[in-house]
Design a protein around this nucleic acid. Sequence first.
DNA 1: ACTTGGCACTCAGGAACACAGAGTGCTAGA
DNA 2: TCTAGCACTCTGTGTTCCTGAGTGCCAAGT
Lengths: 339, 339
Amino acid sequence: MLDDRKLAVLRAIVEDYVATNEPVGSKALAERHNLNVSPATIRNDMAVLEEQGYITQPHTSAGRVPTDKGYRLFVDRLSQVKPLSAAERRAIETFLMGAVDLDDVIMRTVRLLAQLTRQVAVVQYPTLTQSTVRHVELVPLTERRIMLVLITNTGRVEQRVIELPEVVEDTRIAHLRAVLNSCLDGRYLSSVPDLVADVPDRLPVEDRPAAATILSVLLETLVERSDEKIVFAGTANLAGADFSSGLREVLEALEEQVVLMRLLGETTPDTPSALTVRIGSENPVSGLRRTSIVAAGYGSGDKQLARLGVLGPTRMDYPVTMGAVRAVARYVSQILAAS
Amino acid sequence: MLDDRKLAVLRAIVEDYVATNEPVGSKALAERHNLNVSPATIRNDMAVLEEQGYITQPHTSAGRVPTDKGYRLFVDRLSQVKPLSAAERRAIETFLMGAVDLDDVIMRTVRLLAQLTRQVAVVQYPTLTQSTVRHVELVPLTERRIMLVLITNTGRVEQRVIELPEVVEDTRIAHLRAVLNSCLDGRYLSSVPDLVADVPDRLPVEDRPAAATILSVLLETLVERSDEKIVFAGTANLAGADFSSGLREVLEALEEQVVLMRLLGETTPDTPSALTVRIGSENPVSGLRRTSIVAAGYGSGDKQLARLGVLGPTRMDYPVTMGAVRAVARYVSQILAAS
DNA sequence: ACTTGGCACTCAGGAACACAGAGTGCTAGA
DNA sequence: TCTAGCACTCTGTGTTCCTGAGTGCCAAGT
């Protein structure tokens, strides 16, 4: 269908258009890339490419611009992920190393990614459900009030203040804590509901009402936060690019957690850390039809914990962006595995 | 200097300009506001106002536009904070009530404020230094590793993983925890450095190295987080308004924590919850010369904990914005006091 | 001493127009 | 199958002109 030269033309069009942000014509192509054919030949090829829907012209007698389909072909078959330079790698590493806690890791990551790609970076917090319990703490605050603190192996900490139905002595709280930790320690959060089911039975009868309250809050915490936390940075980079009008829509989409979740996409179970690219209209959110998303999973070890990525105009430098996303995902995984 | 009518003219100019976003001329003024004088008279007044620097004209033969100084006068003497409607109050209350923890309170607050004012909302987390210690927890993770969790009376939780210099038994950790809590409970964070100074002396000699490590991390935590955490929302509202070019700068400023801190301003010790308005060039950040900030302090009880506010074009509806900021600050204070 | 009506002046923004330049499609020839 | 040439089609830009809103100033009115 498309011979090698036509593919080369498409690649050249994408590269030039990404670089210049202007429709690219046959003459300029023949000059800048050594395709060794004349503009006229290129025009013929472009006619074919256009007919097949890979490129289009904004108006008659303007150059050609890649369509979403064109970018897709480019990403799938015509480009290679561009690795970062050694200097960039070092910069990433040292920058991420300085983080003091999970919040800090995520914050640094999202900023780093935004700066590196000059686009909007999006990072999802490690999912609770995929993590394991590292510790459950019950902190008495007053006679009737305790704070529940849940610490996961990814460093994530959730806390809730709980109002007890009755006064409970500290020693009894301590006992409950010990029971909880003994049966939850190291287990997946997803298994917590099952594991705590019989906890009240193992307690003295008088403690059960309080325990029930606490457990219900604990389960609630797991459920509520399964709509994951997401942060982003680098919106200023949107202003620099085009997006003359659509900017409002893009910003609105970014502030919708749910939308962001869908953007980053589902975890692909077989190849968790693979790069996902969604181009323009491929993505499920209206209002972002002019943007592409490059995302990857990250996680400590072989466990896939969450996703991160960048969002930018469809007209983006895919090889470089993909390289940056992949690299950052790997480094974050390392950091999390180490802590 | 400025008689009543001139002030009325200025007020009318501000109101009309805010409403229409177009330079307002003498004729339109005479028609829309019943000043009972002719356009010519208004022109004379406007000439005076312009000479004094309260208004200006974009170009000869255009209407007048308020200057920063004009807005300042308007805010100080010509306008009253507009209270919210009962419906709005109820909406705020119910929306904030649903929050489950501090993160959630802050998140809801910033969104609420953005939606209410249709501008960018900025909320600072309660300062650590003004808060008191509610509990210090030391959670053994492995033989050589413990997690330090610091809980404040505002519900804020800080955690750090600590690598110990040697293996320490859990019972000794528990002892240290007891010592720490007994001397820190209920105290201001700012006094923590003094209070923990003699803690090592009260421990068996063999525990001192570990204790020193833990204490240094604790102190570090206090210092590091004194550059406060700030969140914002509603950037999409910027796109709607003018800001044709400056938008990039504004977005960049918003992502700089330090800049935001300075924007919200210092706490005014005498009247902590008073509204602060910074108009255009009054604010210390270049790149935000076309924006105004309306901020207020909030805190539980009489304690001033942090600040919140909104940022928008100098051309904003000050009475309404101030009303919203004040109301939200009050409600947040209530919520925090209750928890 | 203010206020008002009249009048000449200024200037931004839009409409009409011409034009250069980039790019195309097509056809005939190598 | 590629190339060269040619006629054609547009967008974007620069120019010019014109309208209308708005001003400043002055002289007359109260």
